[in-house]
Simulated scan of single mutants.
Amino acid sequence: MSVELNHTIVPARDPQASAHFLAGILGLSVDPPLAHFTPVTLANKVSLDYDRLDDFEPHHYAFMLGEQEFDAALARIQDRGIAHYGDPACREFGQVYHSKHIKGRRGTYFHDPDGHLMEILTPGGTDS
Rank of each mutant, 00 (worst) to 15 (best):
M1D: 14
M1Y: 12
S2K: 12
H7F: 09
H7A: 11
T8I: 14
I9K: 07
V10W: 03
R13H: 14
D14W: 09
D14P: 00
P15M: 06
H20I: 02
H20K: 13
L22C: 04
A23Y: 03
L26I: 13
L28R: 13
P32V: 08
A35I: 11
A35C: 04
F37P: 01
T41I: 03
A43N: 12
N44C: 13
N44E: 09
S47A: 09
D51M: 12
R52W: 04
R52F: 14
L53C: 07
F56W: 08
H60K: 07
H60P: 00
A62T: 07
A62K: 13
M64S: 12
L65V: 10
L65I: 03
E67V: 15
Q68G: 05
Q68T: 15
E69I: 05
D71A: 12
A72E: 07
A73R: 00
A73M: 00
A73F: 04
L74W: 02
R76D: 01
I77T: 08
Q78L: 04
D79G: 06
G81N: 10
P88L: 05
F93N: 06
H98Y: 09
H98Q: 11
S99L: 04
K100E: 09
K100L: 10
G104Q: 11
G107H: 10
T108S: 11
F110D: 02
H111P: 02
D112L: 01
P113H: 05
H116S: 03
M118K: 03
E119T: 08
I120A: 05
G124F: 06
G125Y: 11
